[in-house]
Every structure is written in C-alpha cells, then in structure tokens.
C-alpha cells in the first residue's frame, strides 16, 4: 500500500517520487546497519540471561533498583526507537515488570547517553540538561499512567504475545 502511494507520487511528481525512493534507500541502509546487531543481542540475552536473574533485578518487587536499571539500560542503547520494541519483548519474556518495560522504552526514546553528548554539542549544555531533567520524571509519569490505564488482562495479552515472537 505504501509502495503504491510512492508510485503514485512518482507519477504525479517525478522529482519528489525519485527523492522518496532515494531516501528509502538511505533509511534501508540505516536499518540494515543497525538492526542485525540488535537482534543478535536480543538472541544472546534470551539464551544466556536466566529468567530468575531478570525477575530478581527488574521483576515485580524489584522496586527502585528495577526502575534505575530500566532507565540505565534504555539510556545506554544505540539505535532508533523501533529497535527498543524487540528488546522489550525479550525483557517481557524474562519476567520484567510492565512498568519497567515502559520506563525502558521511554529512556530508549529520549535519554540516550551518546545522543545527550551530541545534543550538548549542538544545542548547548543548558538546553540539553534542562531537557534531560524534565524527561526523567516525564518518562516515569508516562509509564505510571500507562500502567494504570492498562487492565491486567490487557497486560497479560501483551506478555503472551511477546512469548511467541521467536517461534
């Protein structure tokens, strides 16, 4: 369907259409570069890290330790946001608490350490630090609201879904 839209665009505006295809080539290259290591990492994580360990550190009752770990793992990440979702699925398989999954995704999306350094360089320390300081409570609040609006059944369905992502 999207391919169709691009072909139609090309018919109406050849220049724009060609550009769309060349940008697609570029993002394809980006995906081919970034995606394989992310999936290899999640495969290794799945095989080597025991479920009990993950539950202990990030599962129900992991408290502040789990929250800090979720922020840290998310912030240490590289790659676009869509890379976070497959990793989150493995974390769910390993019994990580739902709110910690949401915090992990929030951290991955916006508090990545390498990005922060780059933000300081481009937009200045004041801008980058201010953003970081609002983002951390923001991530926690969003995770809290999301956990509240999702019923136990709905959360269970998401976890069941994650269970079947590699078969």
């Amino acid at each position: 369907m999207v391919l169709g839209a691009m072909l139609i665009l090309t018919v109406f505006n050849v220049e724009l259409g060609v550009k769309a295809f060349s940008v697609t080539g570029y993002s394809m290259k980006e995906m081919i570069l970034v995606i394989p290591p992310i999936f290899v990492l999640l495969g290794l994580l799945d095989i080597w890290v025991p479920r009990e360990t993950m539950i202990k550190y990030m599962g129900e009752g992991s408290g502040l330790k789990g929250i800090i770990l979720a922020i840290f793992i998310g912030s240490a990440a590289a790659g676009p946001l869509y890379g976070a979702f497959p990793i989150a699925a493995v974390l769910m398989k390993k019994g990580v608490k739902f709110s910690n999954i949401l915090i992990f995704i929030g951290a991955w999306s916006t508090t990545k350490i390498p990005m922060f350094l780059f933000e300081v360089a481009s937009l200045g320390t004041k801008f980058a630090v201010t953003r970081l300081l609002i983002d951390i409570p923001g991530i926690l609040i969003i995770a809290f609201i999301l956990s509240a609006v999702m019923s136990d059944d709905e959360v269970k369905k998401i976890y069941d879904n994650a269970e079947h992502f590699d078969d």
Binding site: M1, V2, L3, A5, M6, L9, L16, G17, K19, A20, F21, S22, V23, T24, G25, Y26, S27, M28, M31, I35, P36, F39, V40, L42, G43, L44, D46, I47, W48, Y82, F85, P86, A89, V90, F165, D166, D167
Partner: peptide, 30 residues
C-alpha cells in the same frame, strides 16, 4: 540457538519494518 532466535524474531517483524522504512522515505521526501 541464540542466532536462530534472533533470526526468527527478525523474520516476524520484517513486514512491519519494511512498511515503516517506505513511510519514512515518503515523509522525508516531502
């Protein structure tokens, strides 16, 4: 086994990834 899992997980999401990549191309052109 880990690599097999990695491949399976990738295969499962590949169609969605392709749609996203095409959408990005389309939007960035505009």
């Amino acid at each position: 086994k880990a690599l097999k899992k990695a491949w399976k997980a990738f295969e499962n999401i590949l169609p969605e990834f392709l749609v996203v990549i095409l959408l990005v191309g389309l939007l960035l052109a505009i």
